[in-house]
Design a binder for these strands. Structure first.
Length: 475
RNA sequence: GGCCCCGUCGUCUAGCGGCCCAGGACGCCGCCCUCUCAAGGCGGUGGCGCCGGUUCGAAUCCGGUCGGGGCUACCA
């Protein structure tokens, strides 16, 4: 049987890195096993879902490079892949489930249930008590006469429910520890509790890999699966694997609210998708001893869900950045230039290609690279006041004047000649230490104390612009 | 409260009974290199939560304890 896995987010906001890692592990497992990666959108909550989020979801997944075999815009044999377009399927299944007695109408409000628990001396937070399980037709009619609309609940069997988790081993829930749960709202709309396992069943998902927060709902889903098998909707219960959390600040599960978890922060911040994905893969998985940088292809070749460990991991922005930097360095020069160019939309591609090698080894993100090359791209530089105060004072003026003299007469404008001329004029001529000799020039030309290598920068800037900036810096 | 999961350096991990008085990466601290910043090189800091048990032998197996996290909606 070929392995079918899925990523099924709801479009209620931007993806966060925990979601992305879940998608990555599903994707990698599918690719490793030559299986199928299904992408399904769970937009059954009209109040929270939005079309913008939906569009961004697809765009983000594409940017990451996690291509799907079935799903929105690519289709597939089990579509549609947006739950909002599957209403008819749900309605039909609900009818069958009801006819077979797997679900029943429940009129109790949470307050009533709680009151019954109190009256019986039980913990009021126990959850639904099964009060409506065996209502007679007359009783149901009476509730309806009051204007109440029933939800539909699944009847949980009075037995232990267990499964062998792909990541955690044997897990079981004691009889009676999981209350009958709601699958259809009073207004007839199906809930996630129904649509998620139902679509997994209908889409023939063989391995459900998801966050560990869904573990407590697994026994309910297993029971629902049995009901679905009974009504002929499917013929097997999938395997489950519950991925550990990605934690954020304060050791709390990373949520959509936490800014450090937002995918867009990394996308807009100049991260490479392969860098971010590599880092995320490190959270809960290891490609092998003494190794933590690898390509997506290498990950696919090595990935097995059984190797994922069960303990939660803290997202470390610093290490993420370092891994990203490593991937930046691994890029072939032309490819690096192309990607850097995306963050310098108004720059001449030829210039970016020539300048890219100067920054490739000194940046963590593409945004930093773009920043560092700003002085080459823009007509005017933005002078850092603190840098100017430090480097363009009396001593600096002397340096600039000497540099101007040496460079103005230079026959050939290339890095080697520039270096030789400045070395002769400043280090030997004025007897300056190199750092004192080149500091003022760097600031005059780039506006900052930190820049790409100076001589190459001057070459790329060109004689005219270089001299103009030096002159402008002379008081 | 109830149910469930987890527990190796500050962080992410390797380790699946002897190869480990625990290895790597990030961070941090030194040194080297150096036109700034990086990169690179060298060295250092630092951990098996605790208590029992099994065993000739435990980071590895079992029990307990403590600690952390999650779920407990007519959200997903």
């Amino acid at each position: 049987m070929t392995i079918r896995v899925r990523f099924a987010p709801s479009p209620t906001g931007d993806l966060h890195v925990g979601n992305v890692r879940t998608a990555l592990f599903n994707w990698a497992y599918a690719r490793h096993t030559k299986g199928t990666f299904v992408f399904r959108v769970e937009d059954t909550d009209a109040a929270r879902d939005s079309d913008e989020s939906y569009a961004r979801l697809l765009d983000d997944l594409r940017w990451l490079g996690l291509d799907w075999d079935e799903g929105p815009e690519v289709g597939g044999p089990y579509g549609p892949y947006r739950q909002s377009e599957r209403r008819a399927v749900y309605a039909e299944t609900i009818d069958k489930l009801r006819a077979a007695g797997h679900v029943y109408e429940s009129f109790s409000t949470p307050e009533e249930t709680e009151a019954r628990h109190r009256a019986a001396g039980r913990d009021p937070k126990l959850g639904y008590d099964g009060f409506d399980r065996d209502l007679t037709d007359e009783q149901r009619a009476a509730y309806r006469a009051e204007g109440r609309l029933p939800v539909l609940r699944v009847r949980m069997p009075d037995e232990e429910i267990s499964w062998h988790d792909l990541i955690r081993g044997d897990i079981s829930f004691a009889p009676g520890s999981v209350p009958d749960f709601v699958v259809v709202r009073g207004n007839g709309e199906p809930l996630y509790t129904l649509t998620n396992p139902l679509d997994d069943a209908l889409m023939r998902i063989t391995h459900v890999l998801r966050g560990e927060d869904l573990m407590p709902s697994t026994p309910r889903q297993i029971v629902l699966y049995r009901a679905l098998i009974d009504i002929g909707a499917t013929d097997f219960v999938p395997s489950f694997g519950h991925l550990p959390f990605v934690m954020g600040e304060g050791n709390k599960k990373l949520s959509k609210r936490a800014p450090e978890g937002s995918l867009h922060r990394y996308r807009e911040g100049g991260y490479l998708p392969e860098g971010l994905l590599n880092y995320l893969a490190l959270l809960g998985w290891s490609i092998g001893p003494d190794r933590d940088v690898f390509s997506l292809d290498e990950m696919v070749a090595a990935f097995d869900i059984a190797d994922v460990n069960a303990n939660s991991a803290r997202f470390d922005p610093k290490k993420c950045e370092v891994i990203n930097a490593t991937h930046i360095r691994m890029l072939p020069a032309p490819e690096f230039a192309r990607r850097l160019g995306e963050y310098l939309p108004d720059a001449d591609p030829a210039l970016v290609e020539a300048a890219a090698p100067l920054v490739q080894e000194r940046i963590q993100t593409l945004v930093e690279g773009a920043d560092m090359l700003r002085f080459l791209v823009d007509a005017d530089i933005e002078m850092d006041e603190a840098a100017a105060a430090k480097q363009l004072g009396d001593a600096g003026q002397q340096v600039l004047t000497a540099a101007l003299l040496a460079l103005d007469a230079l026959p050939s404008w290339d890095a080697t000649s520039i270096e030789a001329a400045l070395q002769a004029a400043l280090v030997e001529g004025l007897g300056l230490k190199p750092r004192n000799a080149y500091g003022p020039i760097r600031v005059a030309v780039t506006g900052r104390t930190v820049s790409p290598p100076l001589f190459e920068s001057l070459e790329l800037l060109g004689r005219e612009r270089s001299l103009a900036r030096l002159r402008a810096a002379v008081a």
